[in-house]
Design a protein around this nucleic acid. Structure first.
Ligand SMILES: [Mn+2]
Ligand SMILES: [Mn+2]
Ligand SMILES: [Zn+2]
Ligand SMILES: [Zn+2]
Lengths: 125, 125
DNA sequence: GTATTATTGCAACTTATTCGCAATAAAATA
DNA sequence: TATTTTATTGCGAATAAGTTGCAATAATAC
């Protein structure tokens, strides 16, 4: 399935690239200048994920957040799982450059990790 | 607000205590012999959380899972955050006895952690 | 310029969780 | 034990996040 360039795709990608934070669908919709349908935003984001341009974080609020990480600059390279930090005060999520290291019991095989610390960020403390 | 003993409370607590895994609301409802309303199960679980008897894990499927951990035997003691493992094959979550250690940038304060590794468990690999 | 098909918008749907409210039943009190 | 108090429950409705079917639109290839 070949990908096409569209204003929507551009706009969402720009937002994510210029954001220091991971963004949720509604945050993206709010911050966009052009109006884009909710379902479309999700579809664009999921495509980015499939293509390895973006990664998805699920927070304890049950919502999905999307971020471009440093490593994503080079999509060839596999993004290694890292911690995320969610500030309860300003309700933003950011990638920490701390890799997740956790030894699992024998016979267990780790494929992915979703790790989110919560608390107060520097701006809010 | 004083807590009362009810068959519902007992049943749910028993299930959790005898389960090696963290359970979601629907898993609990399925496994119970007595019929308990969905909303009630959530309320019971949330009360357990408030009381420190149970802790909640949110997985990347966006669902809440509830577990009694070793440390919870002594509710006085604060449960230290630990990793969890979700098996994509048998769709269960269990507590790993691996504490979450992650250094955060200056000025950041960690209050809680929600860390879930995904993959295949020993039974399923 | 035309054909192909990826992308979009819309509305409807699903699934998880919560909430209001009246009925029920623990536990405290008389 | 009978009565009172109020925590707990069940029900239905509401909320919220995310997905899906479908027809219309518009990139891209030819
Ligand atoms: Mn990240
Ligand atoms: Mn646990
Ligand atoms: Zn903050
Ligand atoms: Zn398994």
């Amino acid at each position: 399935m070949n990908r096409r360039n569209t204003p929507t795709k551009e706009a969402v990608l720009n937002l994510l690239m210029n954001s220091r934070k991971a963004l949720s669908q509604d945050a993206i919709e709010r911050q966009l200048d052009i109006e884009i349908n909710r379902a479309t935003i999700y579809r664009v984001l999921n495509r980015f994920c499939e293509d390895g341009i973006v990664h998805k974080i699920v927070a304890e609020d049950g919502k999905q957040y999307f971020a471009i990480c440093k490593k994503c600059e080079n999509p060839q390279e596999v993004i290694q799982p890292h911690f995320h930090f969610r500030c309860l005060s300003c309700d933003t999520i950011e990638c920490l450059q701390v890799p997740v290291e956790c030894s699992v019991p024998n016979g267990y095989e780790v494929q992915n990790a979703n790790c989110v610390l919560t608390g107060t960020c520097n701006d809010c403390s």
